[in-house]
Amino acid sequence: TTVHIGNVTYHFDNPEEAVKWAKEMAEKLGLRIEIHGDTIRVE
């Protein structure tokens, strides 16, 4: 599972961890997340 924040990509072996981490980052940055299969974007 990959999480994209701007130009930076993070890789997670556990999809649930990826979603949890992306949600925390989105809250901190005042952004929202979009999930497309195994790709998560924070925008």
Results as ranks from 00 to 15, higher is better:
31 L>K: 05
14 N>T: 10
37 G>K: 05
3 V>M: 01
18 A>E: 00
34 E>M: 08
21 W>C: 03
16 E>D: 12
5 I>P: 00
11 H>E: 06
25 M>K: 04
20 K>C: 08
32 R>F: 10
8 V>F: 14
41 R>Y: 15
37 G>Q: 05
35 I>T: 05
15 P>H: 15
6 G>K: 07
17 E>V: 10
42 V>D: 01
1 T>Q: 05
29 L>I: 05
35 I>K: 04
27 E>C: 09
27 E>H: 08
17 E>H: 08
9 T>N: 06
23 K>R: 13
31 L>N: 05
21 W>P: 00
20 K>E: 08
13 D>T: 13
40 I>K: 01
41 R>P: 01
34 E>H: 15
3 V>D: 00
37 G>W: 03
40 I>F: 01
25 M>G: 01
28 K>E: 09
21 W>M: 03
26 A>N: 02
43 E>T: 15
10 Y>H: 05
29 L>S: 06
21 W>S: 01
23 K>A: 08
40 I>T: 02
42 V>G: 03
39 T>F: 07
2 T>L: 10
19 V>M: 15
29 L>M: 10
18 A>L: 03
28 K>S: 10
5 I>H: 04
8 V>N: 13
39 T>N: 07
33 I>N: 01
21 W>H: 02
34 E>P: 02
33 I>R: 00
27 E>T: 07
11 H>T: 10
31 L>Q: 07
3 V>I: 04
30 G>W: 04
6 G>T: 04
16 E>G: 07
5 I>L: 10
26 A>G: 05
35 I>S: 04
34 E>Q: 10
18 A>P: 00
41 R>C: 10
43 E>A: 12
12 F>N: 00
40 I>E: 01
35 I>R: 04
35 I>G: 03
13 D>S: 12
26 A>L: 03
31 L>T: 11
29 L>R: 05
3 V>S: 00
9 T>C: 11
25 M>A: 05
14 N>P: 01
6 G>N: 12
41 R>K: 10
16 E>V: 11
9 T>V: 14
34 E>R: 13
14 N>C: 06
17 E>K: 08
26 A>Q: 03
38 D>V: 05
7 N>S: 13
34 E>T: 15
11 H>Y: 14
9 T>L: 10
19 V>H: 09
36 H>N: 12
36 H>I: 14
8 V>L: 13
14 N>V: 07
43 E>W: 13
27 E>Q: 09
18 A>R: 00
20 K>I: 09
20 K>W: 07
40 I>W: 01
2 T>P: 03
34 E>V: 15
1 T>A: 12
35 I>L: 06
12 F>G: 00
43 E>Q: 13
25 M>Q: 10
35 I>A: 04
20 K>A: 13
15 P>V: 13
13 D>Y: 07
15 P>K: 15
43 E>H: 14
6 G>A: 08
10 Y>A: 03
5 I>W: 06
3 V>L: 03
4 H>V: 15
40 I>N: 01
14 N>F: 06
43 E>M: 15
32 R>I: 15
26 A>F: 04
22 A>G: 03
24 E>T: 10
33 I>G: 02
29 L>V: 04
11 H>W: 14
11 H>I: 09
4 H>I: 15
28 K>L: 14
24 E>S: 12
40 I>M: 02
4 H>R: 09
15 P>C: 09
23 K>E: 07
41 R>T: 13
30 G>E: 05
5 I>A: 03
43 E>R: 09
18 A>T: 01
31 L>I: 05
13 D>P: 09
18 A>I: 02
35 I>P: 03
39 T>H: 12
